[in-house]
Design a protein around this nucleic acid. Structure first.
Lengths: 347, 347
DNA sequence: CCGCTTTACTAAAGCGGTTTATCTGTTCAC
DNA sequence: GTGAACAGATAAACCGCTTTAGTAAAGCGG
């Protein structure tokens, strides 16, 4: 007893396969009586069109792929992805699309791309030199990049990473911090360098530090999870060389680091000020609440999906302007301990 | 210039389509020289097998579907799903599977199920009377239920909802609370009643309350988001009828409610004690940290995926025993204000 | 040098739909 | 009464791949 096919229905309803197909897809092409009979028989038999067969013949699967350069089990530890999906989800609903999560297959994104039966891709945080990018436009499937770099052929949705980072660094400098540490994002895929996002944020931090003539910051690399953030704390210099302020490239690392610092007996923010990046929903709920750079994540997802859908309709789209970022000051930053406010102390 | 097909490669390499197919799928069936030539040509032409065609012919898509009874844009607001996906993701990676998110299409899960080209489904929080369930085993696609009720044909992965809920209620009672409110989970789909999960948790709460002879609790319904939790706070009785303790069926609602309470000038836990349910990662980070019922979400996802994969391999699987839940006491609960500890006050 | 197995490769039949081109009858204008 | 138009239905081609059954040539023991 295998699957009920269109042929079974056709036989049972004493019509051609064509008629059955019409009954579902263009009912107006059938006579009233036939239509009802076919639909009835189909229902009785429990017929349901085979999705892959449909996709093959219609050249459309009704699915968009979310290309994720990391393992599913780790990337979802960061609510960033959830919020992005919320935005994309709104557009998917509007257009009756489902979403396929496409992480690397055996470490290879290219392989994963091949396997995925989708009408378009939204790709996350891919470096411009990633092999996967080349594959994407070689097979000519509509694609929109997010947190990447616009290529000549592929539009990209980005935020103004540098400006936000600069504001974050400036904030700590304004508070009187001099000895800073930067928590870098790791490359998302082994063989490539820093993600474009990480590079741009770093440039922003550095711009502010250089302008202020601040000493060279310490750097530690940590993935966007609380555990990684906690490990990053261990990697900071101890004793008198301990930085008084930390600039993290992700809220999750910032929160994890904050926890580790507190567990080590430090008080945040007086002993250690921390600034995150993203402004996840949860960042307003930590103790103390996290000072961070806000980016409109949900909106970013919406925008990317909107662009992709346009592309899938054949329209050509161009990369929109980077979305604005802004510093949100909360409780995790303050003057360093022992700091004396000096009016007009500049220069 | 349309897509490069297997036929194009065959012609260019002066072999049959079969040979090309073999080159990719059973290289050992080809001679050394031919194999290399075919692979070379395929690469030069940028050939990549059409996934839908492959799926049709092989009767396997390499994808499992996650059936979600809510809109994508709302369900991802709850980190519960993220954690579940982390668990499922581990198994997906192991078995080279991708994951399709399948929310209702135009409000209809059945339609969504039809469209989805997957090898199996994991379905979330479906009521036993949901039409979608019937559709699932009519089309005979391997399925595992999560947070549902085992049907004769479909195995289900559940947690011990009632025991956890009972412990939560008992905890508040032990602290001396009498006037309680329960934040119910809403039905996930319009036409059906409470989710099995909600019913079982409610039963647990009631068991403890009844045993203690506590007065009838207030009830408010709130989705599993912080915003809904905040709204739920507004729905609580004010003044002298205000409950001193709240039992929420989800951490997210609990956290939102806590925020609203604090914003209204109450102190948690002394003015209002709150117990959540789930023990999300973030629940340890709120201020105060949330007392809640822990369930092993990631493990639940892993287990569900493992069972599904077994089913897809043809093995028959039975519903495992419900996973254990346990109360995690943190800072959001305490004696009600004005409570005097009385030794041996029972009876 | 003959039959028999192996090796290397292919033709063709699916997989389960959609769609184009065509084929019947009717109806209708003239 | 006839040709055109049209509604209702269908045969067959097609989508792009896998796989079964089979062929031709080469290898091989006797």
């Amino acid at each position: 007893m295998s699957r009920v096919t269109i042929a079974d229905v056709a036989v049972a309803a004493r019509v051609s396969k064509t008629a059955v197909s019409f009954a579902f897809n263009s009912p107006e092409k059938l006579g009233q009586a036939t239509l009802e009979r076919v639909l009835g028989v189909a229902h009785d038999l429990g017929y349901t069109p085979h999705p892959a067969a449909r996709a093959l013949s219609m050249r459309r699967s009704g699915t968009i792929g979310l290309l994720i350069p990391q393992r599913l089990s780790t990337v979802f530890a960061n609510p960033f992805l959830s919020e992005l999906i919320q935005g994309m989800g709104e557009l998917c609903e509007e257009h009756d699309l489902t979403m396929l999560l496409v992480p690397p297959l055996d470490g290879s994104l290219e392989r994963a791309i091949r396997q995925a039966s989708v009408d378009g891709f939204i790709s996350l945080g891919l470096s411009p030199d990633d092999q996967a990018l080349e594959m994407l436009d070689r097979i000519g499937i509509p694609t929109v990049l997010v947190d990447s770099e616009a290529s000549p052929t592929l539009p990209a949705v980005n935020i103004d990473d540098a400006t936000g980072a600069e504001a974050a660094a400036q904030h700590l400098l304004d508070l009187g911090h001099r000895d800073l540490a930067i928590i870098l994002l790791p490359p998302t895929r082994a063989q490539v360098g820093n993600t474009p996002t990480a590079s741009r944020r770093l440039a922003g931090y550095r711009a502010a530090l250089d302008r202020a003539g601040a000493p060279e910051p310490h750097t530690v690399t940590a993935g966007a999870t609380m555990a990684a953030g906690a490990r990053a704390f261990e990697g900071l210099p101890r004793g008198k060389h301990r930085p008084t302020g930390v600039l993290a490239m992700s809220d999750m690392a910032a929160i994890g680091l904050m926890a580790a610092a507190q567990a080590a007996g430090l008080t945040v923010p007086s002993d250690l000020s921390i600034v995150g990046y993203d402004d996840l929903a949860m960042s307003a709920w930590t103790n103390p609440a996290l000072t961070t750079v806000r980016q409109p994540i949900v909106e970013k997802g919406r925008l990317a999906a909107r662009l992709l859908i346009q592309r899938m309709k054949g329209k050509t789209v161009v990369s929109p302007a980077p979305l604005a970022t802004s510093l949100v000051v909360r409780g995790s930053t303050s003057h360093p301990s022992g700091f004396k406010e000096v009016v007009g102390r500049s220069s």
